[in-house]
């Protein structure tokens, strides 16, 4: 039990990093981490020793976050859908890759794209681990990753509009 607590505590900084990037806001991120940890504690009996603790916690965080976004979606404009993120991307200065730009560019992705991008990019999960953590097929991981990264790339390169497919020469 104690050892389990220690192992969970060791993962808190990683849960915080992911939550910070996912929500874009410090206190909302820590609230999400706290909800996740509390949920994990309530579901402790469901965790099987020897299975991947990190994936288990990130799965719980995913579920908690999706529920939060859903309950907020009624009153706000947050959307889960891949397509709904097609709001026009304001061009930024092409030669300036600033920290603030990555924040706002990330915030314009759909929640689904952001999750995949961050699990692969920050957590360095394999596509397979990401698919299992989020409960989606590996093909979906790849398409969300590809679309999300393309959007970020375009936004940071200052290309106006939602990222379009490149014209094949």
């Amino acid at each position: 039990m104690n050892e389990f607590g220690t192992r969970v505590q060791e993962l808190i900084p990683r849960l915080r990093r992911y939550a910070r990037a996912l929500t874009g806001e410090r206190s909302a991120a820590d609230d999400l981490v706290q909800d996740t940890l509390e949920r994990a504690w309530n579901k402790l009996h469901l965790w099987r020793d020897g299975s991947d603790l990190r994936a288990w916690l990130f799965t719980i965080m995913h579920n908690v976050h999706v529920n939060q976004v859903r309950s907020r979606a009624a009153s706000a404009t947050v959307s889960l859908d891949d397509e709904a993120a097609d709001a026009p991307v304001r061009p930024t200065q092409a030669d300036m890759l600033e920290v603030r730009d990555i924040d706002s560019a990330l915030g314009r992705l759909s929640v689904h794209q952001r999750e995949v991008l961050l699990l692969v990019g920050l957590e360095r999960m394999s596509y397979d681990e990401t698919a299992r953590t989020l409960g989606i097929p590996i093909g979906t991981v790849m398409s969300r990753l590809s679309r999300g990264r393309e959007r970020l790339r375009a936004a940071l390169a200052g290309e106006p509009g939602p990222a379009n497919l490149k014209v094949v020469k």
Partner: peptide, 17 residues
Amino acid sequence: EYRQVVDLLRERYDGVL
């Protein structure tokens, strides 16, 4: 450019650790 996107993300958020 994709590599740059990944590096920027890490640069931005790894500090939380």
